[in-house]
Computed example of a mutant assay.
Amino acid sequence: MAKHLFSQFPEDEQREVAAVCSRLGFVPDDFEITDEGFQPDDGDPAQRQVSVRRPATDAQCAYDASEGPGWIGEFESDLECGLFGKSSGRAPA
């Protein structure tokens, strides 16, 4: 199992997350974002799970990222519905 910090994610994912956060009044630093990848023993394709936690609210969620950056849309929906609380108000105008 390999665990990565958000700063180690692919640059395109980092940019997309930053854009989503900015649109909704957040910044990526509001969150602890990590991933873990693993190869199942049965020969299935590698799997990746992204975990997002907002320390200010202690809200957290895990997203299946095995198919790439599609998890970011789910994260955006969770931000919009308030799962992680209100925005920090720190995003650029």
Rank of each mutant, 00 (worst) to 15 (best):
E36Y: 06
G37I: 01
G37D: 14
G37R: 12
F38G: 10
F38L: 06
F38I: 00
F38C: 03
F38Q: 02
F38W: 15
Q39K: 14
P40D: 03
P40L: 02
D41I: 03
D41M: 04
D42E: 10
D42C: 07
D42N: 15
G43I: 02
G43V: 03
G43F: 04
D44F: 01
D44N: 11
D44G: 04
P45R: 08
P45D: 10
P45G: 03
A46K: 01
Q47T: 02
Q47G: 01
R48D: 03
Q49K: 13
Q49H: 02
V50W: 06
V50Q: 05
V50I: 10
V50R: 05
V50D: 01
V52N: 07
R53Y: 00
R53K: 11
R54I: 09
P55H: 01
P55F: 02
A56E: 05
A56L: 12
T57D: 09
T57I: 01
D58F: 03
A59Y: 09
A59L: 07
Q60M: 13
C61M: 11
C61E: 13
A62E: 12
A62M: 06
Y63W: 11
Y63G: 01
D64L: 07
D64M: 08
D64N: 11
A65Y: 00
A65V: 08
E67H: 05
E67A: 03
G68M: 02
G68W: 02
P69C: 03
P69Y: 00
P69V: 02
W71G: 08
I72N: 12
I72S: 09
G73I: 04
G73Y: 13
E74Q: 13
E74W: 07
F75Q: 14
E76W: 11
E76C: 12
S77I: 12
S77C: 07
S77K: 15
D78R: 11
L79R: 14
L79H: 14
C81G: 03
C81I: 05
C81P: 08
G82L: 13
G82A: 10
G82R: 13
G82H: 12
L83I: 13
L83Y: 10
F84N: 15
